[in-house]
């Protein structure tokens, strides 16, 4: 409990400090936030263009795809907000500054995650919320407690899944800082994948996204449940509720891979 309080105190201190520093430049900050809001809309433009040409994409309508996009977008926006700066970590290794984390009495991953907080990334959250509003306004969903709960729970669960993927793949920097760009294929790639119904993809990729690289659990399966849609490719029903478990498993894998990476760094000398 003490641990949690300390963590919250530290995080609050950090966020306050960052907010103060970033709000000092009011106009620049306003520009940046509007910039990120616009950016999250422009991503959606591609989907609108797609649906200007067809009525359905793999048997999903525009509002349905918008729901997928919004859920995935919200989860990713929060992930980016909280750990987006993890992309700077390979630079730390390259400059020899990762050592500075090892001499402090906290876990290295903990320190990295709490190292920064870019307020402007909230803009992406606003953009995703706008798309969500559009989706919900244009869908006739049979709302019940379960469906509402799913919508609420799925965003933090999605954050854990995305964050775990991010941490796991960025660990490649422990072995090769140069190769770090490969992690983009999984983090930003994963987000791209999660915006579309998985029946768009080939059979092998669908299975991959369900069983190995669990991106389908961020938005697709929960969306199936919320929409009350039968799975067009006939995957088992219980998968729709497996997201929290998947998140836990992903977090375990991420932390194990990270520890393995740190261990390698301590042997090889970085």
């Amino acid at each position: 409990m003490d641990e949690v309080r300390n963590l919250l105190a530290l995080y609050r201190r950090l966020i306050e400090a960052r907010l103060r520093a970033q709000l000092q430049y009011r106009t620049s900050f306003a520009l940046e936030i509007s910039g990120t809001v616009l950016i999250s809309f422009i991503d959606f433009v591609a989907i609108l263009v797609i649906f200007a040409n067809v009525q359905q994409l793999a048997q999903w309508t525009l509002p349905e795809v918008a729901l997928l996009y919004a859920i995935s977008g919200l989860a990713f926006a929060f992930t980016d907000l909280v750990i987006g700066h993890l992309d700077d970590f390979p630079g730390l290794i390259r400059d020899g500054n990762f050592d500075l984390l090892l001499i402090r009495p906290r876990g290295t991953l903990f320190q990295l995650l709490t190292a920064d907080f870019q307020v402007r990334r909230l803009g992406k959250v606003l953009g995703a919320l706008a798309v969500l509003a559009y989706a919900l306004a244009n869908l006739s969903i049979d709302w019940d407690l379960g469906r509402v709960a799913m919508l609420v729970v799925i965003v933090p669960v999605g954050v854990v899944i995305f964050a775990s993927i991010w941490v796991t793949t960025i660990c490649i920097a422990f072995w090769s800082v140069g190769a770090r760009e490969a992690s983009n294929a999984f983090t930003y790639g994963g987000q791209f994948l999660s915006q579309f119904p998985i029946n768009v993809y080939d059979q092998w990729l669908r299975r991959f996204l369900a069983y190995i690289f669990p991106i389908a659990f961020v938005a697709y399966f929960p969306a199936l449940f919320i929409l009350g849609k039968p799975d067009p490719i006939g995957l088992p029903d219980w998968l729709r509720f497996a997201s929290p478990l998947v998140a836990v498993a992903a977090a375990i894998v991420a932390s194990a891979v990270w520890r393995f990476g740190v261990r390698h760094y301590q042997s090889a000398g970085g």
Binding site: L10, R13, R106
Partner: peptide, 11 residues
Amino acid sequence: ESFELLRHIYR
């Protein structure tokens, strides 16, 4: 602010 953050990190 660095000192304050360290205060929490080092408890």
